[in-house]
Amino acid sequence: MSKFMRNRVRLFITLLVSFPLVVSAATSRFEEQGERSFTLVEHYKYHRMQYKDALIKQFYEQRRDANEGADRQLIQFISALRKDNFDWWLSNWNQNTQVDWQQKTELKKARRVYNYWRATVTKQSSVRLKDYILIGQYVLVGVQIDNEYHLLPFELENGYWRIDQAYMNAVFFQKLKQRLDAELAN
């Protein structure tokens, strides 16, 4: 056998012996114990007050930086839409929401949400406050705009009531909104 062939055979044997060790080091530190499941049940208590025929007829003409209550802030939010004032409308959202939308400028996230709300609220829309709900550190204000029910979560941020977009994505919030929505439909 030539020297070249001897080296090739030696290399082959070395690889053959060492390869399982390499595989073993990469895969065999742990042994499987099987699939497990974990159930998390969360109960969110709240206090709900229903407005007594609160049809809103007076809206704001301009932005007011004052803590006049979560429901008055909702009226500012709607007033901004009636005036088609994007900056005023945006100022109703909390800092985390605004930062999140700034990071998604290429997706035009803020504008898309604004356009949704602009299509929801017109100057002829009837706006009726329905629910005032206290849950944790949040106040949820339910409002009927024409025939649609909307629920907006407000939190106090630096002394002002601001809407939290992330809170609206929470499962319990969606579930509560569905419940109130269904109640209104019935």
């Binding site: 499987e32 114990q33 099987g34 109960h43 969110y44 709240y46 206090h47």
Partner: peptide, 15 residues
């Protein structure tokens, strides 16, 4: 007073 309950089930493999 009201309560809203959410149940989530998570699965994982244990080693």
């Amino acid at each position: 007073e009201g309560v809203i309950s959410v149940e989530q089930v998570f699965h994982y493999e244990l080693f």
